[in-house]
Write a protein that binds this DNA or RNA. Sequence first.
DNA 1: GTTGAGCGTT
Length: 257
Amino acid sequence: MSHFGRSGPPDIRDTYSLLVLNITFRTTADDLFPLFDKYGKVVDIFIPRDRRTGDSRGFAFVRYKYADEAQKAVEKLDGRTVDGREIMVQFAKYGPNAEPIHKGRIIEIFPKTRGRSRSRSPRPRYRDDYRDRDYRRRSRSRSRGRYDRDRYRGKERDYRRRSKSRSGSPDYHRGRGRGRYDDEHRRSRSRSFESASPVRRSPSPRRSPSPRRTPSRDESPERRSRDERSPSPRSVSPRGQRVGSRSPSPRNSDAEE
DNA sequence: GTTGAGCGTT
């Protein structure tokens, strides 16, 4: 009985959706259920979570059966400290279909399935739209993360409070990257070649982090040949220095190789 | 292991 939203939206014909923000990432529906259920009849609780990691996004949706109970819960649970974090309870402004709702109450869910198709307006692509926005917002949060927090600490709260307006485009310079998958992937690849890592200051000869190495190619004479022909800066040094530093005996060097 | 603006799924 704790599986809320696991079977999709049960029945939200006459339910009021409450948006719970500022909740911890570890808070689950089970933790919110007893809290909200105490103030009213909770028909469903849904907590959006990431599709890749599966972690909670930090907010939850609580559906009440009656508006009066929902309102009460908002006033009672709004500002309550849950799991050590102050949560913010308020009526949902948008419905599951990205449609504006009235005080958390869903006006109509599926206008199309209601009898004949009176509306000739085609249904917009909710999935595609929400996917795009979701990924973008997520990456932004993850990207900024603690870097800004350490800089602004408590001031950033005031800053974002004023600039919280949805009208403002939080897209600073996210780039045309569709997501962070490609971005991270690209950077990772680049790192392999060039030392883009600040911590990586040692020119580790191990350029093959993958344990899976192809013996055929690795042991191939071509590879070795190239390696010798394209030696490191140190090896590229004149023979006198290299030989004198590495092998005091030129004879040994010859025998070794 | 981390994070913190905001509005949702089988």
